[in-house]
């Protein structure tokens, strides 16, 4: 700023901000989280590629639970209400969030959708994100935990290729393990090795929504999380040979 003659020349003024770029989203997410916690609802952000089996997992979860927990969901998709229809048919009250061109859910989309729902009646509420291993990773929605659904057919190198998604997740559900025998060269050990290279404390479960293998362990995790007793230790199960 010109101090000497007061000529009024444009002058520079530095303003310290030191704020997260996503501060606006974080603020709404904190609001969502406070509501979920106050209502005693376990909110889980379910992420994964298109076709990884997120919706099939929720359908199978409802079957496996057999009414032990009340479920609810919102599901994000660019178009159609298909996931919402499937979830409702599986007995999970749910609403679709059509994002049009947006590649992820954000806290405001979730907040506005919750306003039209009876979400407080759920024990566990799933935020089924848009199928995408990139963008959803950085948007807090107010969830208690991030879960990544990765199907064995996507290949064991996906954690290495999408490290941000896996670094930020609390649990990986490795799905479609019934297909492993049909995938030459693809092994469970290769997935586990990849998890360890992007997650310092990998927690994962292998399961099949089709055959039901691994589903009891997943339900145990849900019940423990709901009771606030989920282990922070590495969580692994071996597949029956």
């Amino acid at each position: 700023m010109c101090e000497s003659c007061g000529c009024g020349d444009p002058a520079l003024m530095p303003v310290d901000v030191h704020e997260r770029l996503l501060a606006g989203n974080d603020h709404v997410a904190a609001h969502n989280r406070a509501h979920f916690q106050a209502a005693g609802v376990l909110a889980l952000n379910l992420m994964g590629s298109p076709g990884a089996g997120k919706t099939a997992l929720l359908e199978a979860t409802a079957r496996e639970l057999g009414g032990r927990l009340r479920l609810g969901a919102v599901s994000g998709d660019l178009a159609t209400d298909r996931d919402g229809e499937r979830l409702r048919a599986a007995g999970i009250p749910s609403r679709t969030i059509q994002t049009n061109s947006s590649c992820h859910l954000d806290a405001t989309l979730v907040h506005d959708t919750l306003h039209g729902m009876d979400w407080q009646r759920s024990d566990v509420f799933f935020l089924e994100n848009v199928g995408n291993l990139v963008c959803p990773a950085i948007y807090d929605l107010g969830q208690a935990a991030n879960i990544v659904v990765l199907s064995v057919t996507e290949g064991e190198d996906k954690p290495l290729k999408y490290p941000v998604m896996f670094k930020n997740c609390d649990l990986v559900l490795l799905t479609k393990v019934d297909l492993l025998p049909h995938l030459p060269g693809v092994t469970l050990d290769a997935f586990v090795d990849a998890f360890g290279r992007v997650m310092p404390e990998p927690r994962w479960l292998a399961l099949s929504a089709l055959t039901g293998v691994g589903m009891p362990e997943w339900v145990q995790w849900l019940l423990a999380m709901r009771a606030g007793q989920a282990s922070k230790k590495p969580l692994r199960i071996r597949l029956p040979s």
Binding site: D9, A11, E19
Partner: peptide
């Protein structure tokens, strides 16, 4: 993970204002 390896922040803004 090293500090700020997952940072996503606005640090500072330089504005042009009228001189006094």
């Amino acid at each position: 993970l090293a500090k700020d390896a997952d940072a996503l922040s606005i640090l500072r803004i330089e504005l042009e204002v009228d001189g006094v």
